[in-house]
Design a protein around this nucleic acid. Structure first.
Lengths: 334, 334
DNA sequence: CTGAAAGCGCTAACAG
DNA sequence: CTGTTAGCGCTTTCAG
């Protein structure tokens, strides 16, 4: 059995309260005893039981994270940022993949609730009224990550998706492109779907470029084959000189498809992706993309949550972090 | 405040033991009361406090996972397998990134210990004597994932790395290649470094192909730029008609580098990767690779750990799962 | 300064 | 069948 505070007390010939004191208020115990206790702790390699502590403090120093799917490089980066910030702030992360499935989500929320998490990081999905109600009910601090809610008063950290998509499209337009295709997420997704689509539309409109329905192909954010998406886009339209894909993975599908068709990138068609996942620097050709500071988003989200957990409420509720166009070799002037 | 068992008891006008019973041994309580309790639970949306329970049962239903870095697609897939298996078996996963740093690892092991995890999943790193000693001390069931130990009696699940590398090299040889380069992990890494190197050597030797020191470039598994690695390899040798990279990411670096140099793949140089991460299907050209069943490895590891946690010890201590060569477009006959 | 005792939320004998 | 009681490991009054 693991040693308990009793074992330490016995070994040091003091009461358990004294042991507890040397751990929580060392100055209140006389040196001589303190040393004995410390020695006993060392000898037994004693570590306090976090369950017992949590029961008293009503803090577990663990935070729950729900994400769609860790296999998505985008989330993996965010998680890493969370991890590092958590380590620093003294939290552990329990990570759950929801596949954006409501039941899975609710099931995990329940587990979190039972396990008494101190806070929740909710990633990427739009937040629906019933989700909100459920979160509310659990009375646990929440921070939305790479998503936000205008409807509810929930803190969040993300980039400005509309502006980012606008910038990407604008970048293409300034490079002389007018026939710009887009592979977008479903408009049903109000976070990365609708917003980016709107940014694209705004850029086109601003330059008086006709918006053609067939130049856009929509995919579900969480289940799509990037290659098929590219194929579908090029099957439903023609004459494109550029395509803006709303994720690097999708852009890789485009690169792959175009290569199969003998279309050269960027000579014949320019491609820009979104996210700037690590591998986008090694595609053939290297991918021009809209960089999101994933790591930072995750890191910052934890800081924000930490503040909330401690009752502090930070200046801005909905934080926007900067994005940036990373020019590489998959785009060219026309 | 969250409702406790007392609140439920009060509302249902029964003792807390009765409430406890309807949760743990429903048949031992008379229908009438049972219904009242259930109604109260429902009304209060009561959920038992896992901390209190854990304190009694000495089970937390959470397992700790240490991995080098979640950003690596390879681990992300494994984690997903663990996640799904965990959900099924009723565990939560606390995931920690060690960056293969000893201090980080030990710090996390401590946290795990305090949080009373039921089991530990140790990924990818070789396991050194002092690590083993530490694990042993914590007396917690451990399963090694994508690593193993011949030195210690620890259960594990992984592929046969030596054979996999042998197969990859052999595949290249059978395709007519004799000048086969390799980008390998450090030989200091006994799991994915040494073994794969040995598989490569065995295949060459078997075909009486001279082993040239300069045809191999070694990188640290956890910190390397794939592009630079490719560049280094081709700088130190020449005449290669094929290269075997021990990870898909490394192979992508090779693809990228070769493309920059105007060397066509697979016409001039064939490239085979390792892992079969999702994106390897979308590289240009599509990557031929050695597929590891990452998801399954993770999944199986949890099942194995679960068995151990319940005192069962399964048939094979060190499990080997099958690998497979996935032929795509980055390799050609010579 | 320090030990005894109560209590965090829950389960498990133990009587009745 | 069900309430009372002790106790999981720890912190925190409260006396002394």
């Amino acid at each position: 059995m693991k040693p308990t505070i009793k074992d330490v007390a016995k070994l040091a010939s003091v009461s358990i309260s004294t042991v507890s004191r040397v751990m929580n208020a060392p100055d209140t115990v006389v040196d001589n005893k303190k040393e004995r206790v410390l020695a006993a702790i060392e000898e037994l390699k004693y570590k306090p039981n976090a369950l017992a502590r949590g029961l008293i403090y009503k803090k577990t120093h663990t935070i729950g994270v729900v994400i769609p799917d860790i296999r998505n490089a985008y989330y993996a980066d965010i998680i890493r940022g969370m991890e590092d910030a958590s380590k620093k702030a003294g939290y552990s992360l329990i990570i759950c993949n929801t596949d954006t499935d409501r039941n899975r989500l609710f099931s995990y929320l329940n587990t979190f609730y039972e396990k008494q998490i101190d806070g929740l990081l909710y990633t990427s999905n739009p937040i629906y009224p019933d989700y909100y109600k459920e979160l509310k009910r659990h009375r646990v601090p929440v921070v939305l990550v790479a998503t936000h809610s205008m409807e509810f008063e929930l803190p969040s950290v993300k980039i400005d998706d509309e502006q980012a998509a606008y910038d990407a499209t604008r970048y293409l337009i300034e490079s002389g492109h007018r026939q710009i295709g887009m592979i977008s997420f479903d408009l049903g997704d109000s976070i990365a779907g609708q917003t980016r689509y709107q940014g694209y539309v705004r850029a086109l409109r601003e330059s008086n470029i006709e918006l053609k329905r067939d130049n856009i192909f929509f995919v579900s954010e969480y289940s799509h084959d990037p290659y098929d998406a590219a194929e579908s886009l090029f099957r439903q339209t023609s004459g494109l000189t550029a395509v803006f894909a709303v994720s690097d993975v999708l852009a890789m599908g485009v690169l792959s498809y175009l290569n199969d068709k003998g279309v050269s990138v960027p000579q014949e068609v320019s491609v820009v992706g979104f996210d700037n996942i690590r591998l986008s620097a090694y595609t053939v050709p290297r991918l021009t993309t809209v960089a999101q500071p994933m790591y930072q988003i995750g890191y910052r989200a934890v800081e924000k949550l930490h503040a909330r957990i401690n009752g502090q409420t930070d200046a801005v509720l909905r934080e926007i972090v900067p994005h940036e166009i990373v020019e590489r070799a998959s785009t060219a002037r026309r």
